[in-house]
Nucleic acid binder design. Structure first.
Lengths: 130, 130
DNA sequence: CTGTAGGGATAGGGTTTA
DNA sequence: TTAAACCCTATCCCTACA
């Protein structure tokens, strides 16, 4: 079953849910969470990377494994105006008030979500760039 | 970064009552180190300690418009011990007896609320995984 | 009033694209 | 390869209701 690729805006709230997107994805959400002792002196930054079970249960006949994760949105780089607005909004409302920023600048962030704002903020601060 | 950084150490976090949390919502942001893999015992010495806004502007009588709030707790993933304990407790007391579970494991669920337990249960069962 | 259920928003880990 | 952009969902907060 193919999905429609008409670049649905994010209003379509059909969540494909990993399983639908990639049927070989193991349902390992909490079976091996190693983030145990974080209360206090958490000092382990190494996540165990278990071997991915990919390929262990794939029938040799069904070689057609469309891992195309049909993104619902096309990648769109942040414009200067958007970045400026976001920066100002963070100074004004504080970090984390993404919804508020969004509502206050609907026209500018027309195609962005709160998560996008958060993502942008993260990528901007991740490497020292303010 | 010119944002105010007020870190709230999770360990010393005293969970106030609902009313207390509801009335005085701090505007402060927690210190966000992006990496999250800091030693924990090496860099928590120098922090700006802003005066606590407790009791400065609370007016229980007027319930103004529900303003957007900021989080007062930093996200903390459930440890394996917590999950195990919760799972056992569910088997023991039955689902929904969050307060009971909480009281029976105060030491483990030190920083969790009944709602947290419920939330965890929800996320665990939300996708068919039990 | 206490405690639970559920909706909604954010934080952070992961994946895909450029 | 790296980083930006995007996705997924665990966690948190609030409100309604039993």
């Amino acid at each position: 079953m193919e999905k429609d690729l008409t670049s649905v805006p994010r209003n379509d709230y059909h969540r494909p849910s990993l399983m639908e997107r990639n049927s070989t994805t193991p349902i390992s959400e909490w079976n091996d969470s190693i983030d145990g002792l974080e209360g206090g002196t958490s000092d382990h930054a190494i996540r165990c990377h278990l071997p991915s079970p990919k390929g262990t249960k794939v029938s040799p006949l069904t070689k057609y494994k469309p891992t195309k994760i049909t993104r619902s949105r096309k990648t769109k780089r942040w414009s200067q105006l958007e970045e400026e607005t976001r920066k100002t909004a963070v100074d004004k409302f504080g970090r984390g008030k993404w919804k508020l920023m969004l509502d206050s600048n609907k026209d500018i962030f027309k195609e962005r979500t709160e998560v996008d704002l958060n993502d942008k903020w993260r990528s901007m601060t991740r490497y020292g760039c303010k």
